[in-house]
Design a binder for these strands. Structure first.
Lengths: 201, 201
DNA sequence: CCCTATTGCGAGCAACGACTCGCGTTCAAC
DNA sequence: GTTGAACGCGAGTCGTTGCTCGCAATAGGG
């Protein structure tokens, strides 16, 4: 944001722009949403848009930050309340929280859909890092229950599996599976993986 | 392909174009590769390109078909030889085969990277369908060993997890994990998931 | 050698994208 | 009320993209 809006009307405009951006992205997709479209939808000129956002990317990044913040808040809350639960329960809880946020509005769904493209943006990078740390903490805290011989690999595989499966599910136009079926299967899979070290070998 | 090349020189040109397309995509990425760039790299004019390909998408689709064919061949071969192996072994075998193909040349890596965008193209759709069927067949054949209560959900989760984790791994510039670590973790996870129905409950 | 179909060319078109710039308007401090 | 800064505007710039069209070069059967 190149200039801080100081007057009320400009602050309103920034809010309008963000809302319009969310709406246009939801309607036309991330690629189809041009700065001109967004400005028009906000009832504002392109020039004004560029007064407050350095680039289209900066605008998207602002939207992303909102989204990431929501996910982070709700996930952290679940994590705290379930920190001593078993793997299946905590996975289920976190997935439910993520779905809850992602399905709040269509723009967030579209953003989740394009996770792979947006991974480089700082807000998403921060969110990913945070999730990784949270998982690591959980596994270290419960290291007696789960024997993981290659922690980095296990984390990579687990997180990416959840991650992209959810993203792909959200991206479907007409899903053949229900949200709960996917959550169930994913938490079963993760729980089985983490517990495998105990039973066998 | 709007016109079939009949003379030798035109067939050569089509081959040149495909090769150049692969090279340009590898160098500049899928988005950065314009038809003009590709034609130039092939030492051919844009007009000639459009003599043999209806559109840019058609050109990419041709490339995709080559890639999908290679994956399919090598995966099928592994599937046949490992059809009675346990889940970990067969997963490992298939993943190794996929990596083998995907790492053959940088263009294929780029294509694998953009799997999510290319899913709609017919070759990739066919490949996905084929993989799904193969997994279903394996699980039905071994239905005594693995108790899956929700087969569609289990298939969705398993395939997507493998799928996108591999795609993401291939997309990394400087991976922190080795190929084998990822393959190992993924096949451990899948095996644990499929076997979970037996031990517990 | 000729003649016609096939091939090859590449300047140029139309559409669209992100982004700028000069100018008129509004606000708020004095 | 005046004045200067903040704000808002949108036609226009510049670059890129996918793609076309009229024309020249070539091949190869007669």
């Amino acid at each position: 944001m190149r200039k801080q809006p100081s007057q009320q009307r400009s602050r309103d405009m920034v809010a309008q722009l963000l809302q319009a951006a969310a709406q246009v992205i939801a309607e036309r997709g991330l690629d189809g949403a041009s700065t001109n479209h967004i400005a028009e939808a906000a009832g504002v000129s392109v020039g004004s848009l560029y007064q407050y956002f350095d680039s289209k990317d900066a605008l998207v990044e602002a939207l992303l930050q909102q989204f990431a913040q929501r996910v982070l808040t709700v996930v952290d809350e679940r994590l705290r309340s379930l920190i001593d639960a078993d793997a299946r329960t905590i996975t289920r809880g976190i997935l439910e929280a993520v779905f809850e946020v992602a399905e709040q509005d269509p723009c967030q769904r579209e953003l989740a859909r394009h996770w792979h493209l947006l991974r480089t943006q700082s807000s998403f990078k921060a969110l990913e890092q945070h999730m990784l740390e949270a998982c690591r903490l959980y596994l270290l805290r419960h290291h007696r229950d789960y024997r993981i011989d290659n922690l980095p690999a296990a984390l990579f595989v687990s997180i990416n599996s959840l991650h992209y499966t959810v993203a792909h599910y959200l991206g479907q136009e007409r899903p053949t599976l229900s949200r709960d079926e996917v959550i169930g299967a994913l938490s079963d899979m993760l729980a089985a993986y983490l517990q495998a070290g105990n039973t066998s070998l």
